[in-house]
Each structure stands twice: as structure tokens, then as C-alpha cells.
């Protein structure tokens, strides 16, 4: 029952007075009730449980956690260069992908 993967809202419509939408999971599109995320917009990511969107993914919080890891990885880099060398690059890439996506919303 607990589908933990976030999906992207691709369509919003009304059905019997309820705010409904289509959510895309890398190609698989499901019908979802959006009543509990009234402000959601097309292009945003949401967590869905048993046919209901429960939460809109907060991009800023996602970036904040990347930044916390950046620090963690930074301190690890000091200890062992070989092992942790490419972390910074990975995290920078992640942050960029979040920002890029934001521009397209």
C-alpha cells in the first residue's frame, strides 16, 4: 500500500466535484485525487498513497538536505581522498538538477 516513489503531476481536472489529476511515474500514469494538496500545480512532484496525493515535494528542503550532505562528504573527503573523491561532484550535480527542474515549472 505504501508506494514511496514521488510522481510528477501531468494533468489536473475535476470529477464529481473532486480535484483529480494524472501523475506520471517514469512513464506509468495513474489517476490520483488531489483534494489534499489544493495548491499543487502541473509539473510538481507529489507523494501518493492509495490513490490520494498526500504531500507536495518541497524543492527547497530537498536542496537543504543536499547541502547538509555536502558538509558531511566534505569532512569525509579530508579523511580519505581516494574513497570520497567524487562526492562533491555528485552532490553538485544533484543540486543543479533540482534547480534546472525548478526553471521548467
Amino acid at each position: 500500500m505504501c508506494l514511496a516513489i514521488p510522481g510528477k503531476v501531468v494533468e489536473i481536472y475535476d470529477e464529481f466535484g473532486l480535484k483529480m489529476g494524472k501523475v506520471d511515474y517514469a512513464g506509468t500514469v495513474n489517476k490520483v485525487c488531489l483534494e489534499y494538496v489544493p495548491d499543487i500545480r502541473i509539473g510538481q512532484y507529489t507523494v501518493v498513497h492509495a490513490g490520494f496525493a498526500l504531500s507536495v515535494i518541497d524543492e527547497e528542503e530537498a536542496i537543504k538536505s543536499y547541502e547538509a550532505w555536502e558538509e558531511l562528504v566534505g569532512s569525509a573527503t579530508g579523511q580519505d581522498d581516494d574513497q570520497y573523491g567524487d562526492y562533491m561532484q555528485t552532490i553538485q550535480g544533484l543540486k543543479q538538477s533540482v534547480k534546472d527542474n525548478k526553471g521548467t515549472l
Binding site: 514521488p6 530537498a62 570520497y84 538538477s97
Partner: peptide, 20 residues
């Protein structure tokens, strides 16, 4: 996939694990 792949990154996982 967005919001998935980054949370499965093995390199980052190792850094956190090392800290634990």
C-alpha cells in the same frame, strides 16, 4: 528518476555509513 536516484547514490551512502 528525479527524487529517487539521488537518494540511492552509492557514493553518498558510503559517506554516511562511514560516519555511522
Amino acid at each position: 528518476m528525479k527524487y529517487i536516484d539521488e537518494y540511492r547514490d552509492p557514493v553518498l551512502a558510503k559517506a554516511i555509513l562511514a560516519d555511522i
